[in-house]
Design a protein around this nucleic acid. Structure first.
Lengths: 133, 133
DNA sequence: CAGTATCCCTCCAGATACTG
DNA sequence: CAGTATCTGGAGGGATACTG
């Protein structure tokens, strides 16, 4: 999911390459950090929902109509690993699990907001109810 | 490159699907518009360079050390199609081509800046010379 | 110089079925 | 309910060679 690794048999073999692949230099680029988190296909959609408050797996699944349980699960774990959301499981029967944003996750709001402003300026989008306001 | 299309043989066959794929509902989401433009693997890196001013193909290639001509070409065309950069060819010998941001492209600066602020707050990144300042 | 033309191959998203 | 397990196809990138 990262820009990180690239392989080059030539490089591995010690043969110099015109545009030397293998180690991109921009791993520490801050922009990439942010894109790593929200850049996925579903990530920002999940985030959008969570800005409205905590949610459960099934709720999210219902909101993001076309998502498969696998994709949702993957996305959730991805976001959790990046520390922008928190998973809490309650020992009920059947189990209850809640997802909510962490402060770090809440802070993504500014970014999303700028995106919205940009798109509003350059595209002609009808106001959507559940867009971040 | 877009979230847009997804296929479903089941749906095509008329068989109902639990989480109905095929037509995502969020195509008009403004955030997606922005991510469509900057979300690619190289897009934001190219943009970063262009914020410093117009550039030529070879220059960009040299800056983004690990990019192949194909990827650079693809990225450049992608950005051009989205109207964020402008390509100008001069009839010199050999040909000279310049790329520069359009106003729409310049406006992406706010988004990138917010990303940078977010990352600066939550990660510990050393200042990079060519980050957007 | 500024790209195309190809080939190749990985990787990931989606579909589907199953479970503690 | 809240996921995992698996299989799969197809797109996106990389490498490399070639050209107006």
């Amino acid at each position: 999911m990262t820009v990180s690794e690239s392989k080059s048999l030539a490089a591995a073999a010690g043969i110099p390459n015109p545009y030397m692949p293998q180690e991109p230099l921009h791993i520490e680029c801050s922009i990439e950090k942010a894109l790593d988190v929200i850049g996925g296909k579903w990530a920002f959609l999940v985030l959008k929902e969570l800005f409205c408050g905590k949610m459960r797996f099934g709720e999210l699944q219902r909101k993001l109509v076309s998502i498969s349980p696998k994709s949702l699960s993957d996305t959730l774990r991805h976001l959790e690993e990046h520390g922008v959301l928190e998973r809490t499981a309650y020992a009920t029967v059947p189990v209850t699990v809640e997802y909510k944003l962490t402060p770090k996750g809440e802070d993504l709001h500014q970014i999303l907001k700028e995106m919205k402003l940009w798109a509003a300026k350059w595209y002609d989008l009808q106001k959507k109810h559940n867009d971040i306001d």
